[in-house]
Structure formats: structure tokens, C-alpha cells
Amino acid sequence: MDRNEIFERLNDVFADVFDDDTITVSEDTTAADIDGWDSLMHITLISAVEDEFDIKFDMKSVVAMKNVGDMADVIEQEA
């Protein structure tokens, strides 16, 4: 799966989780850039991404991922 495809699918997941079709995520997107991305939504988001890509994030990734780029890295490795 190439990175563009990952980001396209991530955009759909983000739009669904945050209920906002205008969201477009990039490598540098962080929780501060998206309204409502707090610790509760983080867990919802993680589960939604896991379902979409059929992967499982470990706790290191859940806690330490700093931006969507980090998330895409894990997806690339695991998927």
C-alpha cells in the first residue's frame, strides 16, 4: 500500500470519527490541528484506524505517536 493511499483512507476515517468532511490530514497534522482530538477521541480514532487497515497499534504507538505521519508509518509497517 503506498503512502498516498494510506492518507486517502485516513482522510475518510478522520472525517467519519470527527464528523467533519472537510478534514484533510497530512504528515504533520497533530492533535492540536483538529478540533476535538482529545484523549477520548484519540482512542476512538485509533480503534477506527485499526478497523480500517486491519492492524493493531501497540501501546508505544498509541502513546508516543506525535502526528499523523507517525500513524502512517505504523500502518505502512503493519499492513
Binding site: S39, I43, I46, M59, V62, V63
Partner: peptide, 11 residues
């Protein structure tokens, strides 16, 4: 609490 209790419980 978020990193060592909330996330582990949720996951």
C-alpha cells in the same frame, strides 16, 4: 493517568 491508566484500560 491518561498514558498509564486510561489508555491501558480502554485498550
Amino acid at each position: 493517568f491518561r498514558d498509564y491508566l486510561f489508555y491501558p484500560v480502554m485498550r
